[in-house]
Design a protein around this nucleic acid. Structure first.
Lengths: 156, 156
DNA sequence: GTGAATGCAAAACCTTTGCAACTGG
DNA sequence: CCAGTTGCAAAGGTTTTGCATTCAC
């Protein structure tokens, strides 16, 4: 996950419905607004194609290329995180808090995992002396509680 | 990284040069041996194409598709780990120990990061109760010591 | 008004697949 | 011997790009 909320990221939506605060260098188009709206309305880590399908209901003329463009803009603006799990299609996540992702191998569901102790996390790694960390991505694969037979589940 | 060395993974090369212990279900072909040899000779996380180029010096007739096949076989045999960083081409790593990867944004170099304390790492995450973890992938982006000006480097 | 963003189609890119020929055990 | 593997070429799926049109500011 992002080591911290990126400093360049504008604050979140101070304004009304769907309030999207892109940087001043970015135009607020209907397409960008709807792409962002889709991501925040249902925080289920959709792929670009899934976003495309959902946005088309509001903006029928939108093209997939534009969805990719919007997602890239939002990512670079720091409003959205691109989530890459292995080589599957990228997914997008409006949760800017430092967090990991849990990918259930059984049902495919992807959920956010909070980082309880970021310092402990760094401490658990043997980073080369003198290196600087910009971002840490953590992806966990396994079975989510719904897909884990109770008998097998560890008691945690 | 892999939570642990996969149980199915055969032991590493007990025999002489290039000793490759695939499962009994896999044939030991010249191509597979050389692909594995390339990975262990220079543990620099090459892409499939880079492996292809290196193996071609020993096996001129090899095709890229075969390199992909071999890498998949080796990965499934548990002898090699596929490393995916963002959406860049997959890289391959013969280090089966539990470890993370550091990707330098300046020089592009990818290095292995040891996990000092796997338990502390799990403890730092808020995993859903009743879930089972099969694998944890950790990728760190930043500047490696060589690419970090001394003035900026934290004193760790 | 004007430069940036869109939409479309085509390309690029990494990876997988189908199939005939070959080969390791 | 013969199923598994190779090599080739072609397809696949995701993402990017070129360019004319449209639009936000």
């Amino acid at each position: 996950m992002a080591r911290k909320t990126t400093p360049e990221a504008p604050d979140r939506a101070p304004g009304g419905e769907g309030g999207l605060a892109l940087g001043p260098e970015f135009r607020l188009t209907k397409q960008r607004r709807e792409v962002f709206e889709v991501l925040t309305a249902q925080r289920d880590h959709p792929t670009a194609t899934e976003v495309f399908v959902r946005v088309k209901e509001k903006v029928p003329g939108i093209s997939l290329a534009t969805v990719y463009n919007c997602l890239e803009t939002l990512t670079h603006s720091g409003l959205v995180r691109q989530v890459n799990l292995d080589r599957s299609p990228s997914r997008y996540c409006p949760n800017l808090d430092e967090h990991a992702h849990f990918h259930c191998e059984a049902c495919g569901h992807i959920s956010d995992i909070a980082i309880a102790d970021p310092l402990a996390l760094d401490a658990a790694l043997v980073l080369p002396a003198g290196s600087r960390v910009h971002r840490t991505d953590i992806a966990i694969r396994g079975h989510c509680p719904n897909c884990t037979p109770a008998a097998q589940a560890p008691q945690n």
